[in-house]
């Protein structure tokens, strides 16, 4: 299984996003789940129901923090108040690593509550890498940055998205949360081959993967996280696992959320690609021997 300094030398299996409609099921049935991913911003609070539930979940399960508000692409730098809150939560959850998105989304304190795409330029690489380095040092946890799904590309871009991602993580010396569904969504919206993306990122830096469903319209795809994973995304995931090895994987399901068992069953489909990769590697070793 894929462990490295980017996963804090911990190996996790198949996880699920912790969502409010599943709270009661998880707390009462205690299903066998490898780990839960929490949205950090849902728990950056002083107390109340969110932290009560989180503490109960943490008593039984490993949780990993995934954020939506770091905005490392911000030209105005990081929000230190936000970082301090994140660090307090990191100390509470003991998350092995922490992830957020390669994007921007806030200007002068006004938030878009969105993950907005970046121009893929040298200047943006340097800005993002500096912000990520600062955040990783301050949080004292390995930081993995996630590729976002996008609907627009900038004229100023001088490189592909995967080149940009690679440059950023190498300059920041951080990990990657490879969202396979996002690669697929963006490939359709922008007209590139998603395999080029998967094959050209630095695989040794991939700490975690995301899979999810999306909504296809006549002329574009929106990343809605409200459907099962489609076959082309599973195929892309299979290739990513071949290249990176079995990697901690999380299914995102954020809207029209079905019962817990359905979400868990969908997530566990990822295991078959792990098994296939492990068997293939064993066969290769046996052949050599």
């Amino acid at each position: 299984m894929n462990t490295s300094r980017f996963t804090n030398f911990q190996s996790l299996g198949i996880g699920i996003g912790l969502r409010v409609p599943h709270y009661d099921h998880i707390l009462s049935r205690r299903p066998a789940v490898d780990w839960f991913e929490i949205i950090s911003e849902n728990y950056l609070v002083d107390g109340g129901r969110p932290l009560e539930v989180l503490d109960q979940i943490m008593a039984q399960y490993q949780v990993v923090q995934h954020g939506v508000g770091l905005y490392p692409g911000s030209a105005q730098g990081l929000n230190w108040d936000h970082l301090r809150k994140l660090k307090k939560l990191v100390q509470r959850t003991k998350t092995p690593w922490i992830s957020d998105h390669l994007c921007w989304g806030s200007v002068d304190g006004t938030s878009s509550h969105d993950l907005l795409p970046m121009p893929y330029t040298r200047e943006a690489v340097e800005q993002c890498a500096e912000n990520l380095r600062i955040a990783q040092d301050f949080l004292e946890r390995p930081l993995a940055v996630e590729n976002v799904s996008s609907y627009a590309e900038f004229k100023d871009s001088t490189m592909t998205e995967w080149e940009f991602l690679t440059e950023v993580v190498e300059h920041a010396d951080c990990g990657i949360l490879l969202d396979v569904n996002n690669i697929y969504v963006s490939s359709v919206n922008h007209g590139f081959n998603p395999l080029d993306y998967v094959e050209n990122v630095p695989h040794e830096r991939v700490a975690q993967m995301h899979i999810a469903g999306h909504s296809r319209y006549e002329r574009f795809i929106i990343d809605t996280h409200d459907h099962p994973v489609i076959d082309p995304v599973w195929k892309l995931y299979a290739r990513a696992i071949e290249l990176c090895g079995p990697t901690a994987t999380l299914l995102e399901w954020d809207d029209k959320i079905p019962p817990f068992e359905e979400v868990h069953a969908e997530a566990l489909k990822a295991k078959r690609f792990w098994n296939h990769t492990v068997e293939t590697r064993h066969a290769e070793v046996a052949h050599v021997v």
């Binding site: 509550h113 609907y151 627009a152 004229k155 100023d156 919206n189 007209g191 002329r219 574009f220 929106i222």
Partner: peptide, 27 residues
């Protein structure tokens, strides 16, 4: 027009509009 690339499927204006409408839907 100045910042965003148009594609055969979507004009730059439509691509920006996708983000614009999502901002409002979410809020």
């Amino acid at each position: 027009e100045n910042e965003i690339i148009s594609t055969p499927n979507l004009h730059a204006h439509e691509r920006l509009e996708l983000y614009h409408r999502q901002y409002w839907f979410r809020l």
